[in-house]
Amino acid sequence: MAQFLDTASGRRIAYHRHEGQDPGIVFLGGFKSDMTGTKAVHLEAWARKNGRSFLRFDYSGHGESSGDFEAGCIGDWAEDARDAISALTTGPQLLVGSSMGGWIGLLLARDMADRVAGLVTIAAAPDFTEQGFWAGFSEVERAKIIDEGRLETPSEYSDSPYVITRRLIEEGRSNLVMNRPLPLPFPVRLLQGTNDDDVPVGWALDLLNHAQGDDIRLTLVKDADHRFSSPECLHLIETAIDDVLA
């Protein structure tokens, strides 16, 4: 059963936490995903087996947390992550960020570097509101967002459409990480499938080239898709975590 953290911003964040050895592992989920996903649950079981502390949670407007998804934005969700890490963990943590969670992890690395022991990303999607959504919209779609404040787009992961709001796009621009220096002074492992229809391989290469650090490695997995949840992919995530912890 989930526990809840009431934040200074008035949001109620649902979470599951397991106590164990530090540095602990914090899982950062993706856009419109929740903490019950395959990777989050699998990694919690792996952490328990290995005696490692673990935290997974739902951003506001996601899963069991309070709030309206359409009202949220990148800054809100990064703040949720900062609040959860600050209140529910001690010392530096290893962040595991999936898709949007990769972007959130990079923001945390910038804003609370003393609490980050390392970073593992899975199909990281930094700046996706700009280089993914906005860049891919037609002029008609852009006008709809500006004039009406929202746009519905199909989702292959849910029966309900993604709702892209004007606030999500405009606020995202204040949290871009690929247009400014990105120091990552700790071990970083980037994992990326070559059959990912949501995050192009080129984004992973761009992140590898843009980030600044002495221990940053990218692993490309042939034919792996955006979910990155096959037994082989889950094992690769475990291996990356072990590598960072070592």
Rank of each mutant, 00 (worst) to 15 (best):
F133H: 08
V116M: 08
G132K: 06
Q3E: 15
Q93A: 00
S160W: 02
D114S: 10
I85R: 00
S60L: 09
R173K: 12
I104F: 05
V120A: 10
P92Y: 02
M178H: 01
N179K: 08
T129C: 04
L184H: 04
N50M: 01
S86I: 04
T219C: 11
L168A: 02
Y162D: 02
P161G: 03
H235Y: 03
E148S: 09
R12K: 14
R142M: 06
E19D: 13
L220Q: 14
T165F: 04
I216Q: 09
T239G: 00
E130N: 10
L236Y: 04
T89S: 00
G75D: 06
S138Q: 04
D114P: 03
E141Q: 15
D58I: 14
A47C: 15
L28T: 13
R56Y: 12
I145F: 07
S98V: 07
S33R: 13
M100V: 02
A211W: 04
S138D: 06
G118E: 02
Q212G: 04
Q21M: 10
L168K: 00
E148D: 11
Q93S: 01
P187F: 08
L106R: 01
L182I: 09
A143P: 02
D6Y: 10
P92W: 01
L43Q: 14
N195C: 12
P161Q: 04
E232P: 02
K222I: 12
G10R: 05
T121W: 07
S158R: 09
D34S: 13
D159M: 06
P231C: 01
G105A: 08
A71E: 12
G101H: 01
A143C: 03
N50C: 07
D197R: 15
T90C: 01
G67D: 11
R167N: 06
D68K: 03
D159H: 02
F228D: 13
G37D: 15
A125T: 11
E44K: 13
L168V: 01
L184S: 11
P181T: 08
W103E: 07
Y15H: 15
L88R: 00
